[in-house]
Design a binder for these strands. Structure first.
Lengths: 141, 141
DNA sequence: GTCGAACGTAACAGAAATGGTTGCTTCTGC
DNA sequence: GCAGAAGCAACCATTTCTGTTACGTTCGAC
């Protein structure tokens, strides 16, 4: 299966929000974000809705509404973003229960779960080393 | 999309091949492997076909045919397995090119590619720390 | 050389996920 | 009240994955 692009869209939106903020625009509409990401405004609202539930952005409704960062860009890591939009595991176990009459089938699931968790944790730790601010700085460099 | 289970199926098959080998059975048919994994024999042949192309197993055809390990279980890591069956990236970039008239849209792709690669490499390194033999030992423990 | 067991592979179906699109509802500042 | 924008539900097209059937191919046993 191909990986999804939600982390990319969310990171793009956050970097764009931070850049706009530095230019004095605290709030951007989903249309404005969608224009930069080059997708549909509903897609942006869906992604930013996930981020809002995680506290990474604020959404204001009504006239003059839009999205703004929920906390400083230096305090939003890519791990925060990943957790907000991609709760799925990186590797899946068997679809259907393996044969429990086989010694391997009986014991393999907790072992693989353990190893997959370990690998996923190193992946998360790597994402946690980068903030939205870092991403924007590297874009502007 | 949800992650696929090909690494799991492949690791299961390899552990089962190694256990059978220890019991004096060097060769197993796809039907026998499928019975332990609890899936269809074609699925097993597809997965083991990937492993064969990577040299991790050998497939014999003709009468009395089947699959056997291509090299010692102590020399097959989960990274080898992952590379053989899951070449897709863990995180995807934008589906359609971002707006190049926006500073963020222009610069974000190489930055994210870099960060994603870094995180993926730590994930790979974690998988490389475990061999099929380790997996089987933990199952039998 | 024939036979048959098992791999190799193509074709297809059902399910799920993803991105995209439209349309309607809800909220809220003016 | 009005208008602008988020929220949300309902689709659609595409892709991917697993599973299944079917058939061709290989090769050892006899």
């Amino acid at each position: 299966m191909a990986a999804n692009s939600r982390v990319t869209i969310a990171a793009h939106a956050l970097a764009w929000l931070e850049l706009a903020r530095r230019h004095g625009r605290e709030v951007l509409t989903s249309e404005e974000v969608a224009a930069s990401v080059n997708t549909n405004a509903v897609i942006v609202r869906r992604s930013l809705g996930d981020l809002q539930r995680a506290g990474l952005v604020r959404a204001r409704r009504g006239n003059g509404a839009g999205f703004s960062l929920g906390r400083p860009a230096t305090e939003i890591t890519l791990l925060d973003v990943w957790l907000a939009v991609s709760p799925e595991p990186l590797l899946a176990l068997h679809h259907s229960e393996p044969n429990l009459e086989c010694q391997v089938g009986r014991g393999i699931r907790p072992v693989l779960t353990d190893l997959y968790d370990e690998a996923t944790n190193t992946f998360r730790a790597a994402l946690a080393r980068w903030t939205v601010n870092d991403v924007l700085e590297r874009i502007l460099a």
